[in-house]
Design a protein around this nucleic acid. Structure first.
Lengths: 138, 138
DNA sequence: TTGACTCCCGTACATTTGTACGCCTACACT
DNA sequence: AGTGTAGGCGTACAAATGTACGGGAGTCAA
C-alpha cells in the first residue's frame, strides 16, 4: 500500500479530534482542541489543510464553512504509528513493548481479567488457524 | 526531573546503537548504522553531536578520536517515548495499546507463556503490595 | 617534508513542523 | 447602501530535523 506520509504530533492531535466528532468545521475542531491546550484558530486550520494534503482527511465547502472529514481510519494510523515505534525502539519486536506496558504499572485489576481473556482468544485463534488469511476464499 | 528535549526519529536510531555497543567512535556507530540503511558518516556525526547537546550522550576525545557514550538510560527514554505515544494515540490509557499489540498478531506461541507469567506476577504484586514503594524499607 | 589518510569541526541548506497574520468575500443588520 | 463579522485562503516565518560539504590538523610512510 503506497504509504501516506506520516503524521506529525500536532497533526495527530487534530486527527484524533476529527475521529472523535466526525465531520466538522474548523471552528468545531478548534473548540475541542482548545479544551486541551491553547491553540490558535488559524493553526487548527493549517493542520486540517495539511491533514487533507497528506490524504488523511477530505473536505467540502458547505455554505460558508469548510467541513472536514477523516479519511484514513484510526485503526490504520494507529497500526502504522505503533509499528514505527516498535521498529524504532525495539528493533521490530513486539514483546518488549508489551512487557514494558505490563510492568509499567498502569494496568488495573479489572484490566487483568480482560488481558487473560485476550490471551486465551489469541491462543485459540492460533491453534485453529494455522495459515491466517484476509480473504477466506475456500 | 527537568525533562530532556525529546529525541527525533533519526536521533533515536543513533541512540539505540550507542546503547547496544556502548562507548564508541563516530566510525563505529556509522558502521553499525550503515548496515541498516544508507547514511553518511557526517550525518551520524551530527546526530551524535545533537545527542550530546540534548544531554543524551557525553563524549571525550581519546587520542584522535571522539568517543561517545550514552548518558540517558534506555529505560528512561523508552518510558518517556511510550508515554508520549499512549497520550497522543490513546488519550493516556494503556490498555488500548496492549489490546492492539496482542491483537495485531505478532505474538508467538511461546510468548504467550511469558505473557501469562507476566500477568500472574503483576497480579500477585498488586494484591501483596497495596502501596507500591521504590524502597522497601520495612 | 611531502603526500595520502583519517577524523574532527564549523557550517550550510532544504524540508518539515508549529504557529499565525491579514486580506477577501459572503452574509447579516441597521 | 454601508458596515461589522465570520470564516476561507494564501502566505509567512522561526525552529527542528535530515543530510552533508569542505577545511584543517595530526599521523604514517616513502
Amino acid at each position: 500500500m503506497g504509504r501516506r506520509q506520516a503524521l506529525s504530533k500536532g497533526e495527530m492531535d487534530i486527527a484524533r479530534i476529527l475521529w472523535d466528532i466526525g465531520p466538522a468545521s474548523v471552528r468545531q475542531v478548534h473548540e475541542l482542541a482548545s479544551q486541551t491546550r491553547e491553540i490558535d484558530f488559524a493553526t487548527v486550520q493549517t493542520y486540517l489543510r495539511r491533514l487533507e494534503s497528506k490524504g488523511y482527511a477530505s473536505s467540502k465547502l458547505n455554505a460558508r464553512q469548510r467541513i472536514y472529514s477523516a479519511k484514513a481510519k484510526p485503526q490504520t494510523v494507529i497500526r502504522d504509528t505503533v509499528d514505527e515505534l516498535v521498529n524504532r525502539l525495539f528493533g521490530g519486536r513486539t514483546m518488549p513493548l508489551v512487557r514494558h506496558l505490563i510492568e509499567a504499572g498502569d494496568i488495573q485489576p479489572n484490566d487483568i481479567i480482560e488481558l487473560r481473556q485476550l490471551i486465551d482468544d489469541l491462543e485459540s485463534a492460533q491453534s485453529v488457524e494455522p495459515t491466517p488469511r484476509k480473504d477466506p476464499q475456500s
